[in-house]
Design a protein around this nucleic acid. Structure first.
Lengths: 201, 201
DNA sequence: ACATGCATGATACGGGTGTACCAGGAGAAC
DNA sequence: GTTCTCCTGGTACACCCGTATCATGCATGT
């Protein structure tokens, strides 16, 4: 009937312009007009497809989450052994390459925004860490059953600690105190400590 | 000669108003006018004591750093044993009580700001983590010499990992995914893992 | 007593913000 | 061919921002 243009495609185009600005200049620079210019459309169009700015912000955040999830699945790839999966998941969060730097920076830009608004974005943003932590714990438990991890370890606490550490490492990389490779090395060290150091050296 | 009023005291009063707003509503809400109102002075006075907004931002950030350092020294207190010192330093960063929540939230508010400006604030803000990490590593090395930590551990990497983990745990507490007590428990678990579990318990 | 200079108040200016409004073009339905 | 709905452009409004300007106390040095 209608649909002279592809709505979803337009929304994607605009939302990704927002994410691009949030990445390079921070969210506070992502005004409606700036997004419109970046996307190559008129201000009116941004208003049309996302009535309000909050709507645009939320939609873009959801897309960012999807991108991160896609990246994680790609990094896991055909890895089956729990240690490989855990390593892949944690490594792909660290800002080591261009895409992960982009994703991490953009998430960081959203972070302070969420702290300001108490609960508006909370449902949308607070879930991923929790499910990710559960996923990690599940993998660690499997490794523990397989004897790769000592039975005395509390895998839930370990999972929480690892995820928090990777999060903190990412912040330090973004802050310029460390390179991505150094952060990766810190992570690898602690994984070795947990799973046992690989024989080959 | 001059000094009808105490300049430093006025500056402190205004800067702390800024920090209060940054804590409760985020830095983006800390306009010159809002700070003036919060401090109970006129907009002109804020301009007078801090010519530019950037000056105010930097001064307040420096004061925040001083506050954190004072808190750390207080938490360390008479503790002498390296394990006690390390535990105190790391615990007092976590947002567990009102003051640490305030400090952590405010630092988080500054964080995204620093990401936007590439190097303006970098000298002012990027130092504390590095020196803190060095201090932790020194304490860990002492513990290692005393036999409390296995000689195979790389204390520099461990220090980096611990600090990053505490940082990440703090973020998760601020994000509402965890309580301060839970974060503290995760930290305590990993310290036990490192130093060996205490006999009593 | 008077002039000097610090401290403060009120207000103006230019610009950027999110949102609202009005108008017009284009294709489908009848 | 007319009408109607979807889509798009231009622009205006009200507000808030950081900063600058003008004017005025008011205490002190001499």
């Amino acid at each position: 009937m209608t649909a002279k243009v592809d709505h979803e495609e337009r929304r994607r185009q605009i939302a990704e312009a927002l994410l691009r600005i949030a990445d390079t200049q921070g969210l506070q620079a992502a005004s409606m007009r700036a997004v419109a210019t970046e996307a190559g459309v008129s201000l009116r169009l941004v208003q049309y497809y996302f009535t309000t700015k909050e709507g645009l912000l939320l939609d873009a955040l959801a897309r960012l989450g999807t991108q991160l999830q896609a990246r994680m699945e790609q990094w896991i790839g055909p890895a089956r052994a729990p240690r490989e999966v855990v390593t892949a998941v944690l490594s792909c969060i660290l800002p080591t390459d261009a895409e992960s730097r982009r994703i991490t920076r953009t998430y960081a830009a959203y972070y302070t925004l969420v702290l300001g608004d108490p609960e508006v974005l909370e449902k949308q943003a607070a879930q991923p860490p929790a499910v990710l932590e559960g996923f990690l714990a599940k993998q660690l438990r499997a490794a523990q059953r397989a004897g790769e991890i000592g039975p005395e370890r509390d895998v839930d606490t370990v999972a929480a600690g690892l995820l928090a550490m990777v999060n903190g490492l990412g912040s330090s990389v973004l802050g310029g105190q460390r390179t991505g490779e150094q952060a990766l090395a810190v992570l690898a060290y602690h994984l070795d400590e947990l799973f046992g150091r690989p024989a080959a050296g």
